[in-house]
Design a protein around this nucleic acid. Structure first.
Lengths: 346, 346
DNA sequence: CGCTAAATTTGCAACGCTGCAAGCCTCTCG
DNA sequence: CGAGAGGCTTGCAGCGTTGCAAATTTAGCG
């Protein structure tokens, strides 16, 4: 069995409470006493039992981060940032996957939020709709990340999806592209991310005086590379394929890029492509992938900060922290002889 | 405050113990009683307090998975599999990152293994040496994953690194490659993975009657894409660059591939490349990346099984589960006119 | 030197739950 | 009809810790 406070107390010849005081750095402990107890602690290798402490204190120092899938690069990178941000506040992260399915989200959220195991939850929801989330009453604080799904009820940290998408498409427009397609719409799913990014896409085209042409908006089932590949095949089969493409995330873009390559269509020469998320992978693809980078460390930092604030007892109205984004131009949208000529002809 | 057993007991007009019996599905509870209690549970929305339960039962149902970095594709994918494997056994996973640094590994392992917060630990160590790990005495069971670092002391699940590396290089040899380089050695670090894979590389060359030529073994600081890119630049600067390359993981290979492309060297035509890990990314790179695939789901499954067994009280001698691996041929080592001609000339 | 204030140490109880074993009740069988 | 068997329900105690407040000691001051 593990060493307990009692064991230390017996060895040091003091009360359990005094040992606890030493362990917790209580002010009023005389130096000799502190020394004596510490010696006993060291000798026995005592370590506090986190579970017992949590039961007594009412909090555990653990927060849950619920996300769709760790094997998706964006979420792997985001989880990394969340763990890092939590560490700076002395919090440990319990990561769990929901597969982006509403029922799994409900189940895992219920378990995490109400079991007392964690002090708070950061949720990146994909399956549940905003109106369902808004009705949730978790027993611990919850912060939403990514989609802004229930602004009236829960804190949120993320980028401005509409503006970021608009900026991405504007980047294509400014580079001289005219037939700009997009991959990532998910009509009928009620998913906010794709809805907002589509809205940004439309807005940018409208602002540029372009129209949204049929076939240029490609729907997907998911945001994986494979989905991008499938959508790209459809785009290439069009009578008039696009000359530029905005993908709702980098994985879609990387899948699309691969199909493009197989078809002998070159990027950026024949098709300029920009993604979203700025995953590490896009810095090494061929061509390297232009993208919109949401400040992931900032998202993680803000989410953890919001959560820590709530755990600390804040009852402020729900806050929405909008983290800045930047368009990163890489090879996949770099100016080429062709695009430069086309642009100057405008 | 949350609803407790006592609250339910009061509402149902029974003892706390009886409510507990219902919650835990104890056999000897009469149907009407069960119904009555269940109604009270539903009415109040009672959920067991996991922390209190854990304190009493002595275990938590949580296992820790300690790995270097979630943002590295291989570990993201592995974590996904571990979470999945744990779920089938009703276990929750607490993921924490060590950055592959020995001091962080020590610190986090100490916290995880001795605080009572988790029932067991799966450790993917990079920083600590085998001899240090072998001396660890965590208070909860620990299973090593990946490197086989302390076979006499801890259970382990992973592939046979030497054979897998040998198979990879043999694949290059069999395809007709003669000047086979390798990226990933880490001399002086005491890291097992690179040592074993280098051993496999040497063994394969020797078996084929090739010799290890100077400059063909490129060292790295880490296993990231960037490290592969740097090493590849050095290879290309050689008087006689290689005609094939075995990278100790896929990320190194993908970084190398990118540099190759910039240099105008084509793969597989001018250089055949094979990696290790079979990350999803390699299925969409250009060219798609041949690789050695360790059965990740099996590694995760076995690791969790070993751990669950220990948690269940097994005192069997340390076991080493070797999971099969396969060479996956993709474009980066596919036969080309050139390699076919060269091979037939042999 | 006496007294108050402050510092130090301690015992008690409780966080919410479940193992243990006792107690009660009903049923069966001789 | 009595006794034993077995089903059902319950009280007690304690998992390891810390909040509270009391008890004890030391310090400070007129």
């Amino acid at each position: 069995m593990a060493v307990t406070l009692r064991d230390v107390a017996v060895l040091a010849g003091v009360s359990v409470r005094t040992v606890s005081n030493v362990v917790n750095g209580f002010r009023h402990v005389s130096p000799p006493m502190r020394e004596r107890v510490q010696a006993a602690i060291d000798q026995l290798g005592y370590q506090p039992n986190v579970v017992a402490r949590s039961l007594r204190r009412g909090h555990t120092g653990v927060i849950a981060f619920l996300l769709p899938e760790l094997s998706v690069p964006y979420f792997g990178e985001l989880a990394h940032e969340v763990i890092e941000a939590a560490r700076t506040r002395g919090l440990t992260v319990l990561v769990d996957e929901t597969a982006g399915q509403a029922d799994r989200e409900r189940e895992i959220l219920d378990l995490a939020a109400n079991s007392g195991l964690v002090d708070g939850v950061i949720l990146s929801a994909l399956g549940m709709l905003g109106r369902e989330i808004a009705l949730l009453r978790p027993r611990v604080p919850m912060v939403l990340i990514g989609e802004r799904l229930a602004p009236q009820v829960f804190d949120h940290a993320g980028t401005d999806n509409v503006r970021a998408a608009k900026d991405a498409v504007k980047h294509l427009v400014d580079g001289g592209s005219r037939r700009i397609a997009t991959i990532g719409a998910e009509p009928g799913t009620g998913r906010e991310t794709s809805r907002l990014r589509l809205q940004g896409y439309r807005a940018a085209l409208k602002a540029a005086g372009h129209q949204v042409r049929p076939g240029m908006v490609q729907n997907v089932d998911n945001f994986h590379r494979q989905d991008g590949a499938v959508a790209m095949r459809r785009l290439l089969a069009l009578d008039e394929p696009p000359d530029a493409l905005f993908c709702f995330n980098d994985s879609l873009a990387l899948g699309a890029l691969r199909v493009l390559f197989d078809a002998g269509v070159r990027s950026p020469d024949d098709m300029r492509i920009i993604g979203f998320d700025d995953v590490e992978e896009g810095r090494f693809s061929m061509p390297t992938l232009s993208t919109v980078t949401p400040d992931k460390p900032a998202i993680a930092r803000e989410a953890v900060a919001l959560l820590a604030d709530r755990i600390g007892g804040s009852t402020a109205p729900p806050r929405d922290v909008v983290v800045p984004h930047y368009v990163v131009e890489r090879e996949s949208t770099a100016p080429t002889a062709r695009t430069v000529a086309r642009k100057s002809a405008v």
